[in-house]
Write a protein that binds this DNA or RNA. Structure first.
Lengths: 336, 336
DNA sequence: CTGTTAGCGCCTTCAC
DNA sequence: GTGAAGGCGCTAACAG
């Protein structure tokens, strides 16, 4: 198979006996080029199967029409629905998406960003990993003129663009829903204590209880390191309490899957002896025979979409710096 | 915030009073440059925070160290596990991944490929959409010297690189498993009749039955267009048969979810009155109370990984054309 | 070992 | 309205 080397502007020019600059202008619909010439050029381009060499254009224009997306993982449904939406928005804006998965490794994260930077991406979307502590890279990117918009897992730092989901609203709705149905002994299986996301859940939990005039009992909050073993341990602790809770809110769906299994094995009847609500990150309840009572949705797709839109509004406004955008979605309880 | 414009090779050269080419060579560890010079250059590069401008390098080298991945959808777990593996392999090879989702739209697919081509990606990985009929693009890419490796959903065309999953092996195991457990009335809820993937399932179904000396009865094959409505219809047809099947193999997990629901609603006891096995595309059974008996795994992650490895072996062998690779994984029944 | 020169494909002043 | 010339940053002959 002979490799046909791509047509260039020069060849079109030669065939038409005009100058390359004219061809370039014609192809870009430059107003000062006659209609006739423009048509001739475009026809010839089609005939020769001309496709602009983007690498040359990127180089020349110092713009790549490419955005980079950094995520902890590409295989988790939570993130893949985000990236799917991001790709859609990017595609609408005629942008291409390059991506990297950090696997929650801070070094790998930095490496990806460095790669993106040397690729001269026009902008970055990012959900930070669990182990990211150093945010020096934000300054670096800013210096390089590359805007970044965070979403979902965002740094607690002022003056950065971010889209996040307020976890409290959903927690409030969940507690309300439980209380309405007569539950008073409501427990929280929270994530690792030092995680910001855990603190947020706890605060929301406590204040929602107090709003419902339920006195807060420390024993109803237990922690898991998110392994299956630890999830079960947490559940066993709760089940062994003299005052076993009748309702449990858990850190996420994976935890709930484990603890539901654990509850079944202890002979409890799901949705009767014990009820569940969890923060959603795995879209499967719709299919289950005995799903939890509800789940608190965080809308990863919307977050990704919104973040991408913010990024493009920045890119289209180049020159006038916009104030840092901070968009907060409300998490919401969706009953099953 | 002042934008610092990136350091170039020239500036390093000027500071060091040597020529840009020497700097370039030193940075690339060219053997003919003295150790001292190399060190001086590298130190200065670090000091000035030099980062090579990849867009220039891509342009100059006619190589982008980027591969393009085209998938029907980024949000389906089946594909996201593939892309996750692909990203890992690419990252190991110091390659970047750009991606596009076709959403099963043939035009969008072509558009993505065109974009990739003008981006001068070094290679393409692709799982074709349901509506792709025209494979002219393969020739185009070949002419442009861009290798392509298909995986999962691959074109039935000779001389293309592809990694696919043999659906028959899993079907055979599934039928065997049913027969071993005493089932004789085994049905197949197949996908749209004109889909290649449906024909494959049907053939495997028929021959596995015959191998087990079960006479094939046409009424035990029904079709669905994969909408929930159609899935239910198919199940209702089977359930209304005088000889209702006791075991059902279905096109994929989504179909099974619907038909299990349907079966429950008709008062059948799952895994007792009726048993299920389906081709897997949605990893959730592990969590269910009454999962199907098993599922036929197609290993999307492995497929993506293998396809990526083939692509890189081609890229690293540039010059000597390799014969078209055709790798076939065996689908396998995994019992729950 | 190192410097000089040229050019990748395209766009964009500056001329006419 | 169009052409000529220069250069983006880097690398790779070709010279020393």
């Amino acid at each position: 198979m002979k490799e046909v080397k791509p047509t260039t502007i020069k060849e079109i020019a030669k065939k038409l006996k005009i100058s390359p600059s004219t061809v370039s202008r014609a192809l870009n619909d430059h107003p000062s080029i006659g209609l006739v010439t423009t048509m001739r050029v475009k026809n010839m381009a089609k005939e020769l199967n001309y496709e602009p060499n983007q690498t040359a254009i990127f180089f020349k224009q110092r713009k790549t029409f490419t955005i980079g997306v950094v995520l902890p993982s590409l295989s988790e449904p939570f993130f893949s629905s985000a990236i799917s939406e991001i790709e859609n928005v990017a595609s609408d804006h005629k942008y291409t998406v390059i991506m990297g998965q950090s696997l929650d490794d801070a070094e790998r994260e930095l490496h990806i960003l460095k790669t993106f930077k040397s690729h001269r991406v026009d902008g970055v979307l990012m959900s930070i990993g669990k182990n990211t502590r150093d945010f020096e890279f934000i300054t670096k990117l800013k210096e390089a003129g590359i805007p970044i918009v965070f979403f979902d897992c965002v740094p607690a730092i002022p003056d950065v663009n971010k889209v996040e989901c307020n976890l409290s609203t959903g927690m409030a709705e969940a507690i309300d829903a439980f209380v309405e149905r007569g539950h008073q002994k409501i427990a929280l299986i929270n994530g690792p204590e030092l995680l910001f996301a855990s603190a947020e859940r706890k605060n929301a939990f406590v204040s929602a209880l107090s709003r419902n005039k339920i006195s807060f009992d420390e024993k109803y909050i237990v922690h898991t390191d998110l392994t299956s073993k630890s999830n079960e341990d947490a559940m066993n602790i709760l089940c062994s309490l003299a005052d076993r809770p009748s309702a449990v809110i858990s850190f996420n769906d994976f935890v709930t899957l484990d603890i539901m299994k654990c509850a079944r094995e202890r002979g409890l009847i799901l949705n009767q002896d014990i009820h569940f609500i969890s923060y959603a990150n795995y879209p499967l309840w719709q299919y289950m025979e005995n799903p939890p009572m509800g789940s608190i949705e965080q809308f990863p797709g919307e977050q990704g979409k919104k973040a991408a839109e913010i990024l493009f509004s920045i890119l289209n406004n180049k020159g006038e710096a916009l104030p840092a955008a901070h968009f907060v979605l409300k998490s919401r309880l969706i009953m099953k």
